[in-house]
Nucleic acid binder design. Structure first.
Lengths: 340, 340
DNA sequence: CTGAAAGCGCTTACAG
DNA sequence: CTGAAAGCGCTTACAG
């Protein structure tokens, strides 16, 4: 028994202090006003103040309706699992919705290979789980199966997997429509050859953006290269190599703004006129890139809203016993800039 | 009783399945190998697998040593409380250290005015609390007092408050030394007039950076202006106005890289030679800014490490009953770029 | 409107 | 090495 718990007031202490039974205290803190007289209520509230009482959630959860916390697990190779602005916004939106409803968010980042032995697999401390999984398709599928196997309500961000008969909801942005928007935009401007630059890591969102681009262009892009999007100069070298082999494209599309920014600066460094000679378009607006000049033409991601929607749908699922919708898809907005 | 709990296997189910007593199951999952024979252990582990058993943390916490979760509360005006890269890195570092030790992170962002009525104040579900508080000095002091009043171990990020006799530990980076480094650097280069651009929101870290700058310069800067660091063009207008009134400074120092980047682009837009005519230096390296050209001269923040240190010191505190150190201060590194 | 009893799923403390 | 009993702090279900 450590010092903290020693000193902590319980419902019994409050009851004694207020001269009522523990049940009355419970009724007060649960706002069951119909069961408590005004006088008793006032005395209980005063006693709570005096003793600095805070309800112990563990005890409440044990007898009550289970843990009032939602887990958010980010499965990522990198320990800096919030370095991505998209993820950070999404987590904030989720946390805020939960907190507003008096729920809690349990956040963890886990390496794909560490998931099997993580605490999440061995212990049960949340009422539902949200997950954002990166990595190649097969690894992701394994992670998803493992999470489904937990037998808890699951919200998957930016994924497209079968939901039939599973206690599962997908929450994602419409990456395909966004890609199509880019393709149509470039096609309308008469751009003939488009170079698509994608991150090496295969992500469903990226594949969807590319599929949309092809649909919008009315055919595959002139070139598709994969780059390490975290390595600024690697992106530039890859672009340089492609241009050396194929000449300047009519447009470069970066599957995210990190790539597009790197490509843009590379073109400017070579003295290429943007957008007159080569257009540059990105994806997933990032405030830091918004400040660069010239302003990147890109698409705005509803990342924060994705988190909010996930929280709302999860809380409703916990209330009603099933997900009403199983595929929630939010639009992305075209953000015209000076580069495309 | 909802569907989830209905189906959930308990220690009793596992015991029955394995043909042992619940205590033996408890001993197995707690790795008390000295109390369990190899055969019993194997049968228990098999039963756990078969039933998909996961320990219920609420029950463990209730009888055991209390909740194995640490709260991280970010007190911020903005709902997008992880939009700041510094904060996001810090949270990731904290979460990883805790998870590695089989602890959990409970994350919340709360508006300063909403703290008093937040769930955190009414219920007890973490063993200790970490907090990052923004806002003006008086508001912050009130928040800190409130958090201290909870009677739980507290780690405060980027704060400098008295720790005497309080169950409190400060974890921060050496902003003053960083500021001094900038000042000395500019003084050594013979820069006469320095314009310091600070965010409107008063933050102890910012004040410390400014104090350090003055120490390094050997006197106050030629000018000090406050700007809304989230508003890119407001930063530029403020700089333009200052220059209109006072002429070009020898250097602009931005108290963070957001400000410095905006200032840099403003100067380049006016055709001012950087660093030949005006030098520009930032603070708190941000990967997105690292990609801009010319590369900003700035200081690298150990944000991720701050989170790690906080986690380590908190876990030790929970073990030993007191904080060994109460002021942990990590160095910032000078990152020479092309602008200063 | 108020309260005494039972129980949630574990762990602690102790007996064999 | 294994197990039966008691208890953590609440809430549920019921009696008055």
């Amino acid at each position: 028994m450590n010092a903290e718990r020693q000193g902590r007031a319980t419902i019994k202490d409050v009851a004694r202090e207020a001269g009522v039974s523990p049940m009355t205290v419970s009724n007060v803190i649960n706002n069951k006003t119909q069961f408590v007289g005004a006088a008793a209520r006032a005395r209980v509230e005063a006693a709570i103040q005096r003793l600095g009482y805070r309800r112990q959630e563990s005890a409440r959860n044990l007898r009550g309706a289970g843990p009032r916390s939602i887990g958010m697990v980010i499965v990522d190779e990198s320990p800096a699992f919030l370095a991505n602005f998209f993820t950070a916004q999404l987590v904030a939106g989720l946390a805020n919705v939960l907190n507003r409803a008096d729920w809690t968010l349990t956040l963890s980042g886990v390496h794909p290979q560490a998931l099997a032995n993580s605490g999440l697999m061995r212990s049960y401390d949340v009422g539902g789980l949200c997950a954002m999984v990166s990595g190649p398709r097969e690894a992701r599928a394994e992670v998803v199966d493992r999470l489904c196997g937990l037998g808890q309500p699951l919200v998957l961000f930016q994924e497209r997997v079968p939901t039939d008969g599973r206690d599962l909801c997908l929450v994602r942005q419409d990456d395909e429509a966004g890609g199509r928007r880019v393709g149509e935009h470039l096609a309308r401007l008469g751009v003939r050859s488009v170079l698509a630059m994608l991150p090496h890591q295969s992500w469903p969102a990226i594949e969807n953006r590319l599929a949309g681009l092809e649909a919008g262009l009315g055919g595959p892009p002139a070139g598709t290269i994969r780059v390490d999007h975290d390595d600024f100069s690697a992106v530039q070298e890859a672009l340089g190599a492609w241009i050396a082999a194929h000449g300047l494209p009519g447009a470069v599309w970066g599957a995210n703004d990190q790539i597009a920014s790197a490509a843009l600066l590379h073109l400017l460094d070579r003295g290429v006129a943007v957008p007159d000679v080569v257009r540059v378009v990105g994806f997933n607006d990032f405030p830091a890139h918004r400040h660069a000049r010239p302003r990147l033409t890109t698409l705005a991601s509803p990342a924060y809203e994705l988190g909010e929607r996930a929280g709302e749908t999860m809380l409703k699922r916990l209330e009603t016993g099933r997900f009403e919708e199983q595929d929630i898809c939010l639009p992305v907005a075209f953000l015209p800039g000076e580069t495309g």
